[in-house]
Design a protein around this nucleic acid. Structure first.
Lengths: 188, 188
DNA sequence: TAAAATATTTGATGTAAGTCAAATGTTATT
DNA sequence: AATAACATTTGACTTACATCAAATATTTTA
């Protein structure tokens, strides 16, 4: 999967100037303060957000409880996939967990750009595939690892996470209660 | 999501003859007997399988136990996503649950065909997006529904399932033990 | 059609993680 | 610096589902 990330990276680097300009024309740098919403519940996800700096989470509400679906860091792309793909109101909320700088790309303009440029179509496919690989992986973790193992695995992958993200959010990302996470940490 | 399935269907119907011929040239009809493997553990998924007739499942082994990841029916595409996308040996196994007829499309040939035909690139993206929408949905179900609710939801969506698929497989698809599924059914 | 193989149900018991409630620690606000 | 707001921990108790074991039902095979 890391390999695939590099593959995408190399693909972008190999793009001709025309394509890069095209991308540049439909993207803007934007800043969010800690706790700001990049996407609110009920609005249509009309942008993808490439994180240049900061940390972001995606979550949805169920029975008044927040379920964190994804934690995102530098060079990752945050998007409410369902809302973005179908252009329907979003159940998922995207929120900055720190002051954040993103490169925001508009859905409609990207769709148009893709029509005239197969390279962009290819890029879109690769990015979607990358998200799907990640999602499959996350699902398998839920099916095969217990709470402790999932926590250890998260630590291993994103050691910095514990420093910045409140435990409530980590717990909801791991699909466990805050109390259980606290107890797991107490037992190392 | 059903809408999106129709969108793909319409897209295929709208394809020019040249593109359809291209697809036709890299695809072959193939038959599998009940319990046959479309893809075995450890081999690379070099084909996608559009199911024309029959039922298929995807699963992997964990601690000697089978975890069913997907049940597939007519007009759906079975593919071990990770193995197919990265062209690496597969942990997922694809197996026919009944005598099955598929339209099998070769990975490498499809990759080549896409290079010269943006329509196919677009099709690939749509199919991937559809799978991702499905997968996100399945994940959310696991996070928000209990065992009984998941079973009822499966019944509602695929009523025919209970008739053909053994309960062991349904249970493993629902992420519960066979005994729990049996008890759920006893209590309607 | 009888025996063997498989699938399903039922019962008794165990356990990982949840919930509720209260205590303690930490950070932000005036 | 004191207060308020929020985050984390700890304890007592509950619960959904798992596991193990045995009984019954159904399908396959000789």
């Amino acid at each position: 999967m890391k390999d695939y990330f590099n593959k995408i990276d190399n693909f972008i680097k190999s793009l001709d100037k025309e394509t890069l300009d095209l991308l540049d024309n439909i993207s803007t740098i934007r800043e969010f303060k800690k706790n700001d919403y990049l996407l609110k519940h009920g609005s249509i996800c009309q942008n993808s957000f490439l994180i240049k700096q900061g940390t972001v989470r995606k979550y949805h509400l169920f029975n008044g409880k927040e379920i964190t679906t994804q934690l995102l860091f530098e060079n990752e792309i945050a998007v409410a996939f369902n809302s973005y793909t179908l252009q329907v109101p979003s159940n998922e909320i995207i929120q900055a967990l720190s002051n954040t700088i993103v490169l925001q790309t508009n859905y409609t303009l990207f769709q148009k750009a893709k029509k005239n440029n197969p390279k962009l179509l290819q890029l879109d496919l690769m990015i979607t595939e990358y998200y799907t690989l990640w999602l499959e992986n996350r699902f398998i973790e839920f099916q095969t690892l217990n709470a402790t193992q999932r926590y250890l695995h998260l630590l291993q992958k994103h050691h910095k996470v514990i420093k910045t993200v409140p435990l409530t959010i980590i717990a909801s990302y791991l699909g466990i209660s805050l109390e259980t996470l606290s107890r797991i940490r107490a037992n190392i």
